[in-house]
Amino acid sequence: MKILSLGYSSVDSGGPFNVEQNYINTLKSKNIEVVKEIYSFKDISKILISDRKKFIDYLDEYDLVHFHNIFSVSNAIISNILFKNHIPYIISLHGNLNNWSMRQSKLKKIIFLKLFKSFISKSQAIHVLNDYEKNEISNILNFKKLRIFKLQNCLDVSQYKITKLINKEKFTILFFGRLNFKKGIYRLLDIIKLIEKEKINDIKFLFVGPKDKLIYNDFISKIESLKITKIVEIREGIKTLKEKNKLFSESDVFILPSDDEADSVSVKEALSAGLPVIISKNCKFQFTKNANEFIKIIDNKNLNQYVDTILEFYKNYQNLSSLAIKAHMFSDKNFSLREIETDLPKVYNDCLTYSFESKNWY
């Protein structure tokens, strides 16, 4: 089986980029050939003018094409070429059609979906992450005419290390993700202000991630106006697993008061590294009751509950070591790459053989 993967260009795209890379690496380990390409609108325009036949021949070398970026004009154009030449393709939505996402640049997205509706309708399958995503997109997509399969984001949990820095000076609450409005960073600043009023000297909040240039200056201004500069540290985004393990080793708790998540990779990374997580209901994170020691889910309207939960972990610092082992074991059981290794090739095969026997189909 030979797969062409068309997705995101860099780690700055966040979770979807990491998910695509996990798919590629996992499939290669199962002796499935996967090639990643990225085409801009300029690239495709040039190809269609000068080398259209050569490009079609190139696409025909693949059994199936997997798109990871739905709002891409170049991908939509390529999908039309694929359909006309009887090359099957599937689309991973990565939460891009969820309610919150659709409210951002709403008009542009509606126009795109109108102009390129065949991109979706002619696909062999649509990939959603969970039942939440399926329910949210039900008012956009006509499920009667589409095949939908469910497959959550997974990690190589074994690569995340449970280690802690010795003799740390401060209890560290980590925000790890893009510094933008969606992730709830302004809400987190209000939470930090409530913590600051407790006059705790050995606590800090660490923000690590790519900056949203449109709001970053305002974000810094709010930190200064709230007078919480002394307990806030901001760092640039990191890219490698080695850097992530180092970051997690100096952190005690992970927090994400997000307005919307499809299936947060950063939450799963934190759990894999043994951090308890404090997250919003909007993260739509599914877990069993026996995990509520280290997974705390809070309504974003209740800032005081965020504060109480942070202070609970702070006051019971001695329990974090045992919780780290439990969190890592939970991760390995619930979202290990083993699921991708077994399920994704079956989905691909179903698309090629029209058998649709995988348990992942709705």
Rank of each mutant, 00 (worst) to 15 (best):
K2H: 06
V11Q: 12
S13M: 11
F17Y: 15
V19S: 10
V19F: 12
E20F: 00
Y23I: 14
N31F: 06
K36D: 10
Y39H: 05
S40K: 08
K42I: 13
D43M: 09
I49K: 15
S50W: 06
D51H: 15
K54L: 12
D60Y: 15
E61Q: 14
D63N: 15
D63Y: 11
S74V: 02
A76H: 05
S79F: 04
I81M: 14
I87N: 05
P88A: 13
N96P: 00
S101G: 10
R103V: 00
L107A: 10
K108C: 02
K109E: 11
I110N: 13
F116P: 01
S121I: 08
Q124S: 15
S138H: 04
S138P: 03
K144P: 00
K145C: 01
Q152C: 11
N153I: 07
L155G: 08
V157R: 05
K168G: 09
L174E: 01
R178S: 08
N180V: 01
F181M: 10
R187F: 01
D190M: 11
I192V: 15
K193M: 05
I195N: 04
K197P: 00
N201P: 00
K204C: 12
P210M: 07
L214V: 06
D218T: 11
S221C: 06
K222D: 01
I223G: 11
I231Q: 12
E233P: 05
E233M: 03
E243R: 01
E243W: 06
E243Y: 05
K244M: 13
K246V: 14
S251G: 07
V253Q: 02
D259M: 13
D263M: 04
S264A: 13
S264E: 01
S272Q: 04
P276W: 07
P276H: 05
I278A: 02
T288E: 13
K289R: 10
I295Q: 03
I298A: 06
N304Y: 10
Q305L: 12
Y317R: 13
N334S: 14
F335T: 10
E341F: 07
T342Y: 13
N349C: 01
C351E: 03
Y354S: 15
S355F: 05
S355K: 14
S355L: 13
E357I: 02
